[in-house]
Design a protein around this nucleic acid. Structure first.
Lengths: 331, 331
DNA sequence: TATAGACGTGTAAACGCTTACATCTGGATC
DNA sequence: GATCCAGATGTAAGCGTTTACACGTCTATA
């Protein structure tokens, strides 16, 4: 372990007191010449202040905790990048922990993180419900919620505009001549809002809602839901509430002897990479993952300053692809 | 900010001195009854020791720094999970930073991380070369290198057995009757070793090496390399040194009016998720990402204990898929 | 019965910063 | 020329732990 250069050695070498060194380093009032000399000395000695000592003295750890549901989720990497970039600018870092979608583990992770001197906690995606959170909240640092339920938690929420995005997706299908549009839905708030957007688009165009099936946001669920819908028929396009479910739907369509695009148009949600490689490539709504992260980080920083930041709602971008074709009178 | 319960309050409440509380908490010698009373009191008051104070007093931060090349890379999430799981068991956490494949930024990130009291640094994937690292090493905590060059750096290295894996991949093609096998190669150590494995497999079966083209580990590079190979011809199968390049190769094959599998068998490397969704699904060698992470974490922990851990070499698993078919006399 | 450990506990000094307060200097003001 | 005040610097008290050392108290041994 490399030996630490302390502020005392810098003070000695520069011929001033430690207080002056500290002030020179942190922008306190110091005579310009003294400051220059101190900085030069610090540089020469390779001084870098001990974060631990600083935390102890100031009570500010300059660290934010982040909880994600799943370390391998493709969107979380982008969110973390957004968080990291934004925090770095303010001289903050973050600690990530993954709940692996296990409530017990999430509780553990929350406790763990708050025992580690983080100034705020960013909670991403689904996990413990608002009630469990509220119960723990006393022992936790301030929260920032990203795409997560928690209306009455008095915590800033960063979300995407699921309803508008879903409406846009559905409108995209309508613009391609489809009038009978089914929906494969997902659970929780995100699922409900996407369903609402689908419905709103149809109403706005005077169309009757097509059949709906629930897919639980999993590939297998999407497969089953699509099978159920195909068995009933009565639609030429389907808006699927997640790309992962759309994957299952592709399989069901193929197994039914039909072709995605030509026979059934499909639009997904999330904008995951694999959609590009499907045959045909999957039209979808891209989540602004990195921006979500940035917004969350900004909110977290505001919270540490004692502010009460606004909620943020970001919108998704439509990615048109060949899984949606002009309605040709099939089905 | 929640008020801290300090060790003094616990000591008072339990009627002992702070030294005893500390010992009771950390497994020093304390009378069993006293220990029980202290623990109960601590629990009741919701005491949790200040990490900063602890770090300051002990000089151990219980944190490891991790540098990855790219926050959104699909393998890194898995590695981080492995690292996190392993470290958590030892009561450690980690700080991640991404270099975004920019040398200047990587230097910055290294400095930043080492200024943050990490006890060791795990460097994942390509980045600063051994010489630049060696130059900085004086100012850095001990390193652990994962899939990265750095022979003479006196740091434990965690790698995969690229050569054996590449040999396995090539053998897989040979087992399917292919005798003229091309290679799309990548740069750096990983690229060289995979090339060597390909060559070794061919030699072992008395086959002449087919044509080789370089793809730079990018999709576009893979595309170009495949185009070049197809222009020359003379092979019925190709071992591509990364899935990402294989993606480009697929495109080139398709544009040449051929079919992957039927006309040209392809096997990739890495085991990325999207390979499943290609048409046909891409046979590949799966990297043991999570295990790499675990091994790296174990090595890092050993290093903090002053040990000098062994290098670790992990092997990849062949994932057979339909991009490789029995040689049928085509091409 | 004296005595050497062994064991349990307490006292106080670090660890490396920040910062309130005190001190000193040198004009500016009357 | 005395008085103030502002600006620069120093002194020292925390921040919340760990831990070396000192100090009893017992029990086992001679």
């Amino acid at each position: 372990m490399r030996k630490r250069v302390t502020i005392y050695e810098v003070a000695d070498a520069a011929g001033v007191s430690v207080a002056t060194v500290s002030r020179a380093l942190n922008g306190g009032r110091v005579a310009p010449l003294t400051r220059a000399r101190v900085l030069r000395t610090a540089e020469r000695l390779g001084f870098s202040p001990s974060p631990a000592a600083r935390v102890l003295a100031t009570g500010k750890s300059r660290a934010i905790g982040v909880v994600i549901p799943d370390a391998t989720g493709p969107l979380y990497g982008r969110m973390l990048r957004g968080i990291g970039l934004e925090l770095a600018q303010a001289g903050y870092t973050y600690l990530v922990e993954s709940s692996e979608r296990d409530p017990a583990r999430e509780r553990q992770v929350l406790r763990d993180l708050s025992a580690r001197d983080v100034e705020a906690l960013i909670l991403i995606g689904s996990g413990l419900g608002p009630r469990s959170l509220a119960a723990m909240q006393g022992g936790l640092p301030s929260l920032v919620l990203v795409e997560r339920e928690g209306a009455d938690l008095a915590a800033p929420m960063i979300t995407i505009d699921n309803e508008s995005a879903a409406e846009r997706a559905t409108r995209y299908l309508i613009e391609h001549g489809h009038t009978r549009i089914a929906h494969i839905a997902g659970p929780r708030r995100a699922g409900r809002e996407r369903l609402a957007g689908w419905r709103r688009a149809l109403e706005a165009h005077g169309l009757a809602p097509g059949p709906v099936a629930n897919g639980g946001f999993t590939e297998e669920g999407g497969y089953r839901a699509a099978q159920a819908l195909l068995a009933r028929g009565g639609f030429s396009a389907v808006f699927v509430a997640s790309d992962r479910m759309a994957l299952g739907a592709y399989r069901a369509v193929r197994e039914a002897g039909l072709r995605v695009g030509a026979d059934v148009s499909v639009v997904g949600f999330d904008g995951l990479e694999f959609g590009t490689y499907l045959d045909p490539p999957l039209a979808t709504l891209r989540q602004p993952a990195q921006q979500l992260g940035q917004a969350a980080a900004r909110a977290a920083l505001a919270v540490t300053r004692g502010e009460r930041p606004e909620n943020v709602v970001l919108s998704c971008e439509l990615v048109p692809r060949a899984s949606v074709l002009e309605y040709g009178g099939g089905l």
